[in-house]
Design a protein around this nucleic acid. Structure first.
Length: 158
DNA sequence: GCCAACGTTGGC
DNA sequence: GCCAACGTTGGC
């Protein structure tokens, strides 16, 4: 069974539209520099898993569509690039610290589901995203939450 | 191993 | 731009 995840990105940096315009509508998800998120990629995120694409620092913040994991965790090459903002001097090629996965554009929501809408829905009250102080950039989503959010977004769930 | 200082995230 | 919450760093 595929699992469900939510991935955050600032649309100013990389938006859902940017993903759509990427070659093969696919991108590597570089720049995750948090151990908890890294461990999720390393241990749990599998090819074929489903992703809610979330725009943070947006007006309003919202889930805007879905994506699919098309490649499982492999070393994030930007950790070795001194010119990259994601460079990590302590990472060595023979012992990478940071990982990334590849995701592919799937479906845009008919109606983006904003953060206030998510908060309003009692069925989503336990969502990790809505917990106070939550900053994790990749987080698990339950099947029930997935189904509900797709419905709110105007997509029939599969 | 504690914890203060610092940097970052992200909603508002 | 503000600031609360959180993760990481580094001195001790």
């Amino acid at each position: 069974m595929p699992n469900y995840w939510l991935m955050k990105t600032e649309p100013n940096t990389f938006s859902f539209d940017d993903l759509k315009k990427s070659p093969k509508k696919t991108t590597c998800w570089e720049g995750v520099r948090n151990y908890q998120a890294r461990n999720l990629m390393r241990d749990e995120i599998k090819k074929g898993d489903n992703v809610l694409f979330y725009h943070s620092n947006a007006d309003p913040p919202a889930v805007v569509g879905t994506a699919k994991v098309v490649k499982e965790a492999y070393p994030d090459v930007f950790q070795f690039d001194p010119k990259s903002k994601y460079f990590d001097a302590k990472a060595k090629p023979e012992e990478p610290r940071w990982l990334m996965v590849d995701i592919r554009y799937d479906k845009p929501f008919v109606h983006p589901v904003s953060l206030p809408e998510l908060r309003e829905d009692p069925r989503l009250a336990d969502m990790a995203l809505l917990r106070k102080g939550n900053r994790l950039s990749i987080q698990p989503v339950t099947p029930a939450e997935w189904k509900r959010i797709l419905k709110l977004g105007g997509l029939a769930s599969r």
